[in-house]
Design a protein around this nucleic acid. Structure first.
Lengths: 356, 356
DNA sequence: TGATCTAAGTTACCCGCGTTACTAAGGGGT
DNA sequence: ACCCCTTAGTAACGCGGGTAACTTAGATCA
């Protein structure tokens, strides 16, 4: 008896260490019986009476299984790992939330390892490798690799030792499966909405044209216009820094370039921060939103979109869903099931607020 | 030999399971020797030659320790747990970042469990209990309990079984140690800054006056005014909903209540979202920031403060530092050291941008 | 009546590793 | 030649729990 409770050092009640053995003794059965009951194995035959006696003992002693020991014995850990730069930048936290929730549903745990990978490839690669290494030491059964911004990445070598799924990014080297937002459709629904509201002259405030987000969204814009028998006027597309100031400058350019009659009646800003700047440019000119100029953003950054006045209609990045889908894909992989597509696209829904 | 490599099922190279035994065999020594070398124990005597031979074997086989087994044998897990609602609301993610970084430095792991605790006490208590329970099953050595908004909370019972530290909240029941922002000093530095710029008529846009943040910040305002021989005019304090709209309304009230001569020349908004609304109210009246009205916010929500035009001078909540301090406090507790104060206050620094 | 079968458990081994004895070989002192 | 002390390791036990193989008592069957 004495051996199970470690001597209390300070005042803190530290009674750790109720093991299955203690439960077994208390219930007057073997440890194996306890194990069978706890994992309610149907194949083992334990009488109903013994079952409840064991359950009572568990209750009485406050027994709590030791996850580490269980993992050791059963050779399965019930843990996934996620290595990500997101903890550094609060942009895409919903990926973590989605993954975590889904993992919770699957009765699994998510180990989160930070990585200050940054945008410059190769920087801090050391830390990232270490993160993966640490996760593998915990014997995670699968790995999620998540980025804040949709882009191509190089995944650390050791990540290949275990099923790995990329979220919000894709593998530049090999062919690891990935989950990315469907930027193209996102661009399309935004413009479709504007067309439906009667706008035909639509200015586009673009991101750096080389990044996947810009490529996809702009393609979506063309899709929507084409479906309406229109073409994208290159003069109406202005790129800027992905900030409020960048959006302000770009909006000024677009708005001042035309006479009132020819001026676009709507702006599609490829992210919310730029939309925020565009708002200022529009208001400065004595124009109203959406009366004179309708605005649609992209990203659905709550802090901006929900608090701008008027509230911003925008296309949402489905972070949460991507996170959940990442875990589901991982579950399939670890179960040995083949996955359907190597790259899964997740819809970007349009969130209607008051700027159209 | 054959037993260590499990039969590859699909194409994936799954060679899991290099153990210390394999390393020992490869190096021609006992497993114990390997263990000694890996934990580089000075007291054990292993010749330099054997040491390198073992290190080489580790390298050659790609051995990676099994964290679970190590935890089981050594009776220490190297893990802390953090249960928090933050994953749900991206407001205070920096707490996680700070904790994670500090944990990484201490060579420890952070297990994050989500809890949709919400503001209404008692709701979803079940899920929160389950989260703590799960963390304890992983045998975390300590627990962090973090909230998005500074407030009093009830911590699940089982959390008391292990050293626990509250971050950005405090214990309503017992006396668990906590780390909270020094709201009062934050309010003081903001007003001091305004006084230094020559403002004496300062409007305050208040939060719900009952929450700790409002109480502390307002007290700080009084401190600063008193030090300058001034008093807080109650008429200059207007409470509103903690949103942009709320700030807009409150600012309108304050601005319209006075003649131009008597009008306050500065607004201290008790959070950034309200400052965002105040900006609109000010601009609508044809006034400039900071020329006619200086503005200071609180919270330093990057997305708002850094992108408003002009950029918002604001008081930052020290989330990251609080997270790190939480882990440090936990480390002290688990090491059996007594902690100095039951409630640790962390400074809220003023971030100067362009609105003063 | 003895053989066979089933229900209800139990014994014993293993997971990968930390750790405390213990051994074995060489060296020095007297 | 004998004893003791290092140095360099090794054997063996235990951490908490999963699980295959085995036992034992009663029930069924021929």
């Amino acid at each position: 008896m004495a051996k199970t409770t470690s001597p209390d050092k300070a005042g803190t009640t530290r009674q750790r260490g109720v093991t299955m053995n203690d439960v077994a003794k208390h219930a007057g059965v073997s440890r194996t019986a306890v194990s069978f009951v706890l994992n309610n194995r149907e194949d083992a035959s334990i009488s109903e009476e013994t079952r409840t006696r064991i359950a009572d003992a568990v209750q009485a002693l406050g027994y709590r299984p030791n996850a580490g020991a269980r993992a050791l014995a059963s050779q399965r850990s019930d843990w996934y790992g996620i290595v990500t730069e997101i903890v550094t930048a609060p942009f895409a936290v919903d990926i973590i939330k989605g993954a975590q929730d889904q993992a919770w549903i699957d009765r699994r745990f998510l180990l989160i390892a930070p990585s200050d990978q940054g945008d410059t490839a190769g920087t801090n690669q050391g830390m990232e490798d270490a993160a993966v290494e640490k996760l593998l030491e915990q014997r995670v059964e699968g790995l999620l690799y998540a980025a804040t911004h949709h882009r191509g990445v190089h995944v650390p070598r050791s990540a290949h030792e275990v099923p790995t799924v990329l979220v919000n990014c894709f593998d530049l080297d090999g062919k690891l499966p990935s989950i990315v937002p469907d930027e193209r459709t996102g661009g399309r629904v935004a413009v479709e909405r504007l067309l439906r509201a009667g706008h035909t002259k639509i200015g586009v405030i673009n991101l750096d044209p080389r990044i996947p987000a810009a490529v996809g969204r702009l393609q979506g814009v063309r899709d929507a216009l084409a479906a309406a028998g229109l073409e994208l006027d290159p003069a109406l597309v202005v790129a800027g820094y992905a900030t409020a100031d960048g959006g302000y400058d770009a909006a000024c350019q677009i708005l001042d370039r035309y006479t009132v009659k020819d001026r676009p009646t709507a702006l599609f800003c490829l992210n919310d921060r730029m939309a925020m700047g565009a708002y200022d440019a529009i208001k400065e000119r004595g124009l109203t939103i959406p009366g004179d100029i309708a605005v649609i953003g992209f990203d659905n950054q709550e802090l901006i979109a929900a608090y701008l006045r008027p509230k911003l209609t925008t296309v949402a990045l489905p972070f949460e869903k991507m996170g959940a889908l990442g875990v589901q894909t991982l579950a399939a992989l670890t179960a040995g099931q083949p996955i359907t597509a190597n790259q899964q696209l997740v819809d970007c829904p349009l969130l209607e607020r008051s700027s159209v």
